[in-house]
Nucleic acid binder design. Sequence first.
DNA 1: TTTAGCAATGTCAATAGTTGAGTGCTAATT
DNA 2: AATTAGCACTCAACTATTGACATTGCTAAA
Lengths: 328, 328
Amino acid sequence: MLSNRQNEILKLIIEEYSKVPVPVGSKSICDKLNISSATVRAEMAKLEDIGYLEKTHVSSGRVPSENGYKYYVNNLMKPKEMTGEDMLNLQTIFQNKSLVLSDAIEKSLEIISEITNYTAINLENNESRLKKVEVVPLSVDNLLAIVITDNGHVENKKIDLKNSDLEEIRKTVELINKLIVGTPINEVSEKLEYEIKPIIGQYIQNHEMIYNAFYNAFSDLKNKDDMTMKGKNKILELEEFSNNADKIKKIINKFDDENIVSSIKEEDGGINVYIGTENNIDEDLTVIKTKYNAKGEEGTLAIIGPKRMDYDRVVSLLDYLKSCIERE
Amino acid sequence: MLSNRQNEILKLIIEEYSKVPVPVGSKSICDKLNISSATVRAEMAKLEDIGYLEKTHVSSGRVPSENGYKYYVNNLMKPKEMTGEDMLNLQTIFQNKSLVLSDAIEKSLEIISEITNYTAINLENNESRLKKVEVVPLSVDNLLAIVITDNGHVENKKIDLKNSDLEEIRKTVELINKLIVGTPINEVSEKLEYEIKPIIGQYIQNHEMIYNAFYNAFSDLKNKDDMTMKGKNKILELEEFSNNADKIKKIINKFDDENIVSSIKEEDGGINVYIGTENNIDEDLTVIKTKYNAKGEEGTLAIIGPKRMDYDRVVSLLDYLKSCIERE
DNA sequence: TTTAGCAATGTCAATAGTTGAGTGCTAATT
DNA sequence: AATTAGCACTCAACTATTGACATTGCTAAA
C-alpha cells in the first residue's frame, strides 16, 4: 500500500513524463510539493523498489515502469472532464440523422485522432449474413458477380465469360439466391460446396466458372475484416521513434496487419488498457480498446498511442464515444 | 562524345554502385580493366567534368550523378535477357483464362515486386461509364445504394431511411437508371444535379436523402483512383533509408497519396524513366512507368525503386509484362 | 522524519588524435 | 602522346579524452 505522498509523487512523475519523454528528476518534483529533493529521492527509491519506477542509468531521473502505468491507470487516474468543444463535435456527428452508424463512427474517430494525435480504429465484428447475390453483364465476355451482406458490405469479382451461356448463369444465381440467402457469411463457402454444387452440377453444363467466381467473392468477404483506421501515420511522429528507423519500419509492418486489434487479448465490457508488452504491437505503445453494441451492431474501438499517453483524456474520449454510439 | 573506355568506366561505376551504395574508387575499376588507377582517375575526372559523376567530398570515390544515370539509361544499358523462370511465371498467369485482365496484372506485379524488391503499381485509367444503379433494403430503416460502372467497379453507400417511402425511392432509382446510365462517371454528378434533381423534385416529395446518397456514392467513385500497389514497404528496406527516420516518414506519406503515379510527368508510348528529381517522390528514388492498352482497357504500370536500381532488369520486366497484357 | 551536503556516476557535447581510402598532380616511363 | 608510379593532401569515421551538468545514494545533523 502506498502512502498518499508516494501516490502523489508517482502521479506527478507519470504526468510530467507524458509531456516530455525525459527521465524525471527529484528536483522538478520537490518544487511542486514543498519538500526537499532528498525526501523525494527517498520516496522515489521506494517506488523503484516496489517496481513502479525505473532508472535508465545509475544517476538518471526516473521513468515510469509498465507496472507503474498499470497502477496509475487503476488507482490514480481520474477520467478527465471532456471539453465542451470536443463533446459538441462528437454530438453533432451523431445528431446528423442522415449518417449511418458506421459512417458516424468513422467521422468521430477522425476527430479523436486529430485532437489526440494518436491512431484511432474501428473494427466491426458483426455476424453478417448473405443478403443477395447478383450478376451484371459488363461486355461481351465480362460479367460482374456481386455479393451483398445484410450489414451492407459489398464484394465483387469480375469474371471472364468466354463460351458461357448467360441463361445458365442466371439460373445459377437464382438458385444461390433461393438456397443460401440468410446464411452467415462464414458458412457460405461450405454450403456452396456441399449443397449448391451438386445441384447445379446436375442440370447446368458449364457451371465451373460461375461457381468459382462466387466462391472467390465469398471468401474475400469472409476474410476481409471491416476495419477502418484513422491517423495511421500519426504514431510515427512520436518522439520515441523520431530517430529510430528500424522501429518505424517495424510499426508500419504491424499496422498493415488486419488483425492488429483483434489479436490483442479479448476485452471485457469496459475500457481496456494494454500497456507496452501487454499489446503485441510494440513495448513503447499502449492500446486502449472497448467494445460497443448498438442495437445489434457490434464492434471494437481502439486507440493506439505511446506508452506515456494521456490516459485520462483517451479513456474519457473513448468512453464518451461509446456512449454516443450506444445511445443511438 | 565519350570514348569507349569512358563509357566502359561509367557503366562499371553505375553497376558497382547499384550493388553496394558506397562511392566507387579508382582501384576497384582498374582491377577490372587492366589499366592503372592513375589512368582511371584521369578518366573519372573527365566524366566528372562532363557531369556524369559526382564526389561526396574531395577525396571520396565517385557516385553516378542524375545525368550519369540518364546517359546510362539512354546509351549504355542493354535490356537484360529475362530468365526463363521469370518469363514462365508471368506467362502462366496470363494463360489462366479464368483470370480477368486486372487480376492478372495484379498477380504479375506481386511477382515483380517480389523478385526485384521494389514497389510495383498498376493504375487503371479507364474512362468508365455508369452501368447500373440499384438499392437493396437491409433492415427496417437501412438501405444500401449500389452504383456499378461498366469496367466493373462498385461503390456503395448505406442510407438511413427513417420516414422515407420505399416506393418513392424505387421510382428515383428507376429514373436514374433510365436517364443517366451510360454517362461517363465524372459527368454523372453534374447530370444528376441539373437533369435528375429537377425532375424528381416535381413528383417525389421526400427525395433529398436518396438523392444525396447517390450523389455521395458517385463522387466517391469519381475520386477513387483505381490503383493497386504491391510491395509498398519494400522500398523502406533500402540501404539509403536505413538510418534516416525522417526520410522514411516522408516516403510513407508520399505513398499514401493516390496521385503518386499520375502526378509524375506524362509518359509517352514506351518505357519511361524518371530519375531522382524527375519524379516528385524523392531524389533518391527512380520511377519507371509505361502505358498499356489492351482492347480498350488502358492503364499505367509503374515500378518505384532506388535511383541506383537495376535499370536493365526492371525495364525488361516491365516491357515483357506490357507485351503480355497487350497480347491478351 | 526530514533535510543539507557531498561524493559518485553516467550522459552529452566538444575536442583532439589516428587511420585508411581515395584523390590530384607531377615527373618519369613507354 | 598516353600511361603510370609515387607522393602529398584531404576528409570521413572511429576512438579516446575531457569538462560541464544533472542526478543519485548516503550520511550526519537538525
